[in-house]
């Protein structure tokens, strides 16, 4: 029999195939394990070093003079919140309205131009956005300011928000718009009060992700908002922010500053993670219902 004659060869080939399959699948599993390991290494270490640094003073005190142990990062946290608030005031309406334009009217040439520019804007390196905000606001105003930092962050938020808003509104079935129009509701009211308002919670998801991303950005703030050792509420003055403060402390040669940098990193990471988780919990039930 021919097959009988070939059997040892076939068996050898099959073993080879089986082994290579096992090796390949094992490698893929291992690589995924590497990713999980990386997250636990980084996040775990931030927890391990950051947790001891956090106490009450950390949240309510401002930095002590160089060489003195103690103090906190209240100035940086307040500063970060002010910058984020201002950036949101500019970036969220701009981003949502751009997304509305793209989904409701953006079929023509202007639409594709806006889409292209928005994609390109989202890929501009953050440090370049910082240079832009510096040239746009810091130079004419002649000093660093929280405002300049917020504009830089807003510019980074807009493409993300616009894109996610567009994609969500595209999922709204056309008969909903038609129902509104058939009742004689003007189109702008249909768009704002029916299409947009009906999907507000999903749109907020995209907004939250954009804020989470912006809140960790350091490079655009380095030479726009700069830094400040004092608690400041003024928009037209340099202001501290958590990421910049972490950076400054990390590259300084003082142990106590390193300790506080880890504390700051923990606060920042927890803030960013919670925004992400919140955003996911909003979108998850929506997706399973569909």
């Amino acid at each position: 029999m021919i097959t009988g004659h070939l059997t040892p060869f076939l068996e050898a080939r099959d073993t080879r195939r089986r082994v290579s399959n096992l090796v390949a699948c094992g490698t893929l599993t291992f690589l995924s394990g590497v990713a999980i390991g990386a997250l636990f290494l980084v996040f775990g270490y931030v927890l391990y070093r950051g947790f001891p640094a956090i106490n009450w003073a950390f949240f309510i005190e401002t930095p002590r003079p160089v060489g003195e142990v103690g103090g906190g990062l209240a100035n940086a946290m307040v500063g970060s919140l002010i910058i984020l608030l201002l950036a949101s005031l500019l970036g969220i309406p701009w981003g949502i309205l751009t997304g509305v334009y793209l989904s409701e009217y953006g079929r023509g040439r202007l639409g594709s131009a806006v889409r292209f520019c928005s994609d390109m804007l989202s890929s501009v390196p953050s440090i370049v956005i910082g240079l832009f905000a510096y040239a746009l606001l810091v130079v004419p105003m002649k000093h660093f300011s929280a405002l300049a930092g917020s504009v830089a962050l807003a510019v980074m938020m807009v493409p993300t928000i616009a894109r996610s808003t567009e994609e969500l509104l595209r999922l709204v079935p056309n008969h909903i718009r038609e129902a509104g129009l058939a009742l004689g509701v003007p189109r702008w009211k249909v768009i704002l009060l029916i299409v947009l308002r009906g999907n507000l919670s999903a749109i907020l998801t995209g907004v939250m992700l954009a804020i989470a991303r912006a809140s960790g950005e350091t490079a655009p703030l380095l030479f726009t908002a700069l830094n400040s050792r004092f608690l400041s509420w003024r928009v037209d003055q340099p202001i501290a922010s958590l990421p910049v403060q972490i950076y400054t402390y990390a590259i300084a040669p003082f142990d106590d500053w390193h300790r506080q940098a880890w504390g700051g990193a923990l606060v920042l990471v927890v803030f960013v993670f919670s925004l992400n988780l919140l955003a996911r919990s909003v979108i998850r039930p929506k997706m399973t219902r569909d």
């Binding site: 990386a38 996040f43 953050s126 350091t218 990421p243 590259i251 960013v272 992400n276």
Partner: peptide, 24 residues
């Protein structure tokens, strides 16, 4: 779970990676 982990890796701010890079 793996997708979630990878998304969280993306969410960690750049400056925290830098801090980890310097000290670990």
């Amino acid at each position: 779970f793996v997708s979630f982990t990878v998304e969280m890796l993306a969410a960690i701010p750049s400056v925290v990676y830098g801090l980890w890079g310097i000290f670990v």
